[in-house]
Every structure is written in C-alpha cells, then in structure tokens.
Design a protein around this nucleic acid. Structure first.
Lengths: 109, 109
DNA sequence: ATACTTACTTACATAAAGTAACTAAATAAT
DNA sequence: ATTATTTAGTTACTTTATGTAAGTAAGTAT
C-alpha cells in the first residue's frame, strides 16, 4: 500500500503558494512596502480576500502590518525576512514563465 | 490611478502553482512516471480532483498521459519537458521550506 | 459467483472566493 | 453646511472550487 511520503515542511510551503493571490501579493511586496488599496488595485484582488490573505500572511510572519500614526493614519504592508526569502522562489517561477509560457510568441534562439 | 502591471506570463505561471494540488502532483512526477492510483494515494487527493488536475496539466502540456496496451491496460502520467523544467521551482520552494518553515525545531548556526 | 483493482465519472455537500454594498474617520469640493 | 471621496477594511450574499461517497466498466483473483 502506498502512503504519503511528502515532507510536511515542503507541503506547508506549497500550501502557501497554492492559495490564490498569495504569490502575487508577495511579488508586489518584493518591490517595496505597499498600502492596502495599492495592492488591491495593482493585483486585481477583492478587498475581502486581500484582507483575509494579509491576515494569514501576518500570522505566518511573512508580512508585517505597519501603522503610521499620521493624520489620516497610513498603513503599510512589508515583507519580513521570511517573506523576502521567497524572492528566489518567485524568480524561478518568472524564469520558467519566460522559457515556457506562450511559446508561440517566442522564437527559440 | 494604479493598475495591473504584472507580466501575464508570470501571472499564468503563478496560476498554475496556486491551484491546489498542482505543485504536489508535479513534485511526485519529478520522481518518475506514476499511475493514477499511486498519485491519488501518495498525495492524498480525491480521484475527482486528481482527474480534473491531470486533464488541466495535459492541456497545458506539462503532463503527458501514456496508455500501455497491456492486459489490463496500464496508464502512466509523466512530465513533459515543460513540466520537468519546473524542477528548479519546486527545489527553490523546498529550499525555502528548509530554511524558514518550523524554525522552532531549527537551530540557526 | 463474489470480491477486488484500476481509472475514472456522477451526484451531492461544504468550503473558498467573488461582488457589491456598507462603515468610520478624515479631507476636499459645492 | 452638505455632499463626495479616500482609506482600510467588514458584512451579506452568490458563484465557483473542492471534498466525499458511491457508481461504472473492464479485467483479475478466489
């Protein structure tokens, strides 16, 4: 009989990226701190789900929520070290996409 | 006004991985061809969704379905070149997981 | 004849995501 | 002064995705 033999840490990492939007949120935040509404508009996610995801990412210590006590208050989301460490992952996805997505428009060599 | 400025190829690559199970299916297939029931058991996915995902991955030319005309017939799923090219992506996720998931059990240096 | 395996599919239930409207505090426009 | 707009969300409701369980067709094993 065959059973699960997948490393649970790897699985949990995959579960992160396989939630819709998470990859894009991290990708955007790699470019620097962003506000809620900027993220919402730039990745085309609904406020409802963005709010949900950010809370989730905060809980996992991938994203940090910073409140700037200005008037009006400004809230910015940034990546933690753990979050920034995902850059190579996103880069490798980007690299694969360049090589393999939409090959009809790509001339090889 | 802020608008979407994300590379559509990158987005489509992310959409691949952010469907539940896709990452695990590819990860398993990186170890070699597998049959339906083996995949089902080893990653703990339901037949319904596995069937759906495999069709999807076939359409995207990431997975190939091979029918061996034995008695009884044997069907194996393998990765195409495009699929195998995802290995570095899965590796980078694994690497990140080793460094950052469950740090309580990891002593740094 | 009955039970089991493989590679699925179908029907139905639950969970996740999308949509739209709403809130509260502040600012800007009429 | 009243109305509109922005920000950072929340709430209620709908649609889509996933899970669960049972069924199927062809073959094997007992």
């Amino acid at each position: 009989m065959i059973e699960k033999n997948i490393c649970p840490r790897f699985e949990s990492a995959l579960n992160l990226l396989n939630k819709r939007w998470t990859g894009l949120i991290i990708f955007q935040l790699l470019e620097g701190p962003q506000r809620f509404s900027t993220l919402e508009a730039s990745i085309g996610i609904s406020g409802r789900v963005l709010s949900e995801r950010l809370k989730d990412l905060e809980k996992q210590e991938i994203v940090k929520r910073k409140v700037y006590d200005e008037i009006p208050v400004r809230i910015e989301y940034t990546l933690t070290e753990k979050g920034k460490a995902l850059e190579p992952v996103l880069n490798s996805i980007q690299h694969w996409a360049e090589d393999w997505v939409e090959p009809p428009n790509k001339v090889i060599n």
